[in-house]
Design a protein around this nucleic acid. Structure first.
Length: 658
DNA sequence: CTAGGGTTAG
């Protein structure tokens, strides 16, 4: 342990050599007037007092209460009782009272700290982020000849995770081997596995796991999660299948793993299996399932999972995590109203609930609601975090509120101490770009203090598409081709920008580049959600639907009625160099138009037409939908890969910023 | 004392 204690200066922690404590003698009084009490009974009384004090400490909710209880502990002569003091230190840690302010002082008064008290101090420093001090206390503990216990090491490994120090972790790992007796200790080894996993050393974790003579559910689950986090659901599933007994946590790890790897259907399948096996569901499981439903974006699943949440005792009004997850889900399923209903009914709200709701409003173009909520949040004293600001900034950019956006951006650091990350710069570039300030957006991207990422250049490229600026587009695209050489969308966007500008030579250059890279265009696809939740799929130009004939006729009728009102097909939305007749034909075969026609033919007028699209809605379709909502009086909701558009009475909620 | 968790982007 010499290496460790040399490495971490002990100057901040002085361990006074223990002398026979004077307190001790003062406390012992001979009360001859008292009747003789047998020793066993005395011991009993002491035990009663101790357990009474422990429960009093457990019930403490403020520092004042703790101090009061502590004074009582001293009065009762229990100031050397490690059992009680360990509890005291743990409560102080939990309340976030800095170790040096209180816990350390208590500790220094104790003459013979037992391993548990040492460990409580180590753990306290570790949890409060003072890893060096925590290791230093460990060194002192060893020098004083005290032997560590299992959770001394768990605390230390946790600490290594928080400071991302795998070398320190390895040193402590070595310690567990040197001291002996811990090689098959499950607490120690599970914490060790967890540390290696969290620090990205899956190989080391796997080695510890494989060498464990007996593993428990926790060891297995840790590894399942590790594979799931790497996106290797196959390996995770293999491990899961090998598990002789599976508990709720292990099942949940699989459900969430699928949800986090964008496999919502598999997640739901797993959840169904889990329920069939009679495994219980708690709020963590629900969060995974809700997130899967959010990805599916269908109201049918949204209502289904909400029912489950309510029936399983995790009512969104009382359970913050479930409520926040539901807010996000309803927003993504197209119903910002339902999301807000959940939000309103919640008894407790935190930064997640507010941020999700703000992002939900932003997604649906309700910028003012987003702003109002942001200010309400500030009034309640909940501090906004980086995610909250992303929501507020996207609300600005989706409604063209440039000035408000600038102000918010400036206030982030000044008022709220949240320094803007690359993503926030991307929002600003997006905001400026959507508002048409392309030069300024480019300038920001080139001069920002952080290294711009794909988001920054992508936002700029998108803006160039809207405003038809092939020159700036070229700059943005060149950065993107370096940062994301295989992202097909960027090539298509650039080629479309060239096409709109009539620069057909440049179009073929980009197409050639795509061919050389072996990249293929994702087929455009739209889904229509029918009244009962059935999903219909439409590909661009695909006429295999049995009602294709009717759909084509419907579109032509609409086109003629719209033309009478002055609508002109937007030819620049077609990225092929073909004649105008062909362009008109291609435009009418866009997947979202097919879905719209099918929806008009099959869904009754009292129901909104809900369409999802895998790519961004094109300008012509956007205009077309506006017109159709006017002449038919229908509500049309389109979720593209970016956000929601609510078309009603000839207008779109996005206000043409998208 | 060790395992599963919600909000973000072009």
């Amino acid at each position: 342990m010499v290496a460790l204690s040399q490495k971490f200066s002990t100057s901040s922690l002085k361990f006074i050599p223990k002398q026979f404590c004077q307190y001790h003698l003062q406390q012992i009084q001979f009360q001859t007037t008292q009747p003789f009490i047998p020793f066993s009974q005395l011991q009993n009384q002491r035990n009663l007092l101790e357990s009474h004090l422990i429960s009093t400490l457990n019930g403490c909710t403020s520092l004042a209460q703790i101090k009061q209880t502590h004074a009582y502990v001293i009065r009762k002569g229990l100031d050397q009782c490690c059992y009680i003091l360990t509890k005291l230190v743990r409560i102080l840690t939990k309340m976030g009272i800095p170790m040096d302010n209180y816990a350390k002082l208590v500790f220094d008064q104790v003459e013979y700290p037992n391993p548990f008290l040492w460990t409580a101090l180590i753990r306290g420093y570790a949890l409060q982020g003072h890893v060096k001090k925590s290791v230093c206390v460990y060194s002192c503990m060893r020098e004083e000849g005290s032997l560590p216990v299992s959770f001394t090491f768990s605390a230390l490994f946790k600490a290594c995770c928080t400071v991302l120090d795998v070398n320190l972790g390895r040193q402590i790992h070595t310690q567990t081997i040197l001291i002996g007796g811990f090689s098959s200790d499950l607490y120690v080894n599970n914490s060790l596995i967890d540390m290696y996993v969290k620090l990205g050393f899956l190989g080391c974790a796997r080695k510890v796991f494989d060498e464990l003579p007996e593993k428990d559910l926790i060891s297995w689950t840790e590894l399942i999660v590790a594979y799931a986090e790497l996106g290797d659901m196959e390996s995770a599933g293999e491990l899961f299948d090998k598990l002789p007994i599976k508990d709720m946590v292990a099942w949940t790890a699989m459900v969430t793993g699928y949800a986090q790897n964008a496999k919502p259907r598999e997640a739901l399948e797993f959840f169904e299996r889990m329920q069939n096996e009679g495994v219980e569901t708690d709020e963590v499981t629900l969060v995974g399932v809700i997130s899967a439903c959010a990805q599916l974006g269908a109201a049918k699943y949204a209502n289904w999972v909400r029912g489950i949440a309510e029936n399983s005792g995790f009512d969104p009004t009382r359970c913050v995590v479930v409520g926040s997850a539901l807010i996000d889900m309803y927003s993504k399923c197209g119903s910002v109203e339902d999301a807000y209903k959940v939000f309103e009914a919640m008894e407790e709200r935190n930064v997640f609930s507010y941020s999700s709701m703000i992002a939900g409003f932003a997604m649906h173009g309700c910028a003012f609601a987003a702003f109002e909520l942001f200010h309400e949040m500030l009034k309640t004293g909940i501090k906004p975090n980086r995610v909250t600001f992303i929501g507020v900034l996207t609300a600005c950019s989706h409604t063209g509120m440039v000035e408000q956006g600038r102000q918010i951006f400036a206030s982030m650091e000044e008022e709220f101490g949240v320094s803007p990350a690359v993503d926030h710069y991307a929002c600003m570039v997006d905001l400026l770009g959507r508002a048409g300030c392309l030069e300024e957006a480019l300038n920001l991207a080139e001069t920002m203090p952080l290294e711009p990422n794909g988001g920054v250049w992508g936002a700029l490229l998108g803006a160039c598409r809207t405003y038809g600026n092939p020159d700036i587009a070229q700059i943005a695209a060149n950065h993107l081709f370096e940062l994301e050489p295989n992202a097909i969308g960027n090539y298509i966007l650039l080629s479309n920008i060239y096409a709109s500008a009539g620069r057909w030579n440049d179009v073929s250059t980009v197409r050639k580049l795509m061919r050389e890279k072996g990249l293929r265009k994702n087929p455009a696809c739209s889904w229509l959600e029918a009244k009962k939740g059935v999903i219909h799929e439409f590909f661009a130009g695909d006429m295999t639907n049995p009602r294709s004939g009717q759909m084509k006729q419907e579109l032509e009728d609409l086109l003629n009625r719209l033309k009478a009102l002055g609508y002109q097909p937007n030819m620049s939305s077609v990225a092929y160099d073909v004649n105008d007749e062909e362009k008109r034909r291609l435009l009418m075969a866009h997947s979202e138009k097919l879905a719209l026609a099918f929806g008009l033919l099959t869904i009754s007028a009292d129901w909104p037409i809900k369409i999802m699209k895998n790519l961004r809605i094109c300008e012509d379709c956007h205009l077309f939908m506006c017109g159709v909502s006017q002449i038919t009086g229908r509500v049309i909701i389109v979720r593209d890969n970016l956000r929601f558009h609510h078309f009603q009475a000839g207008k779109c909620s996005c206000g043409n910023f998208w």
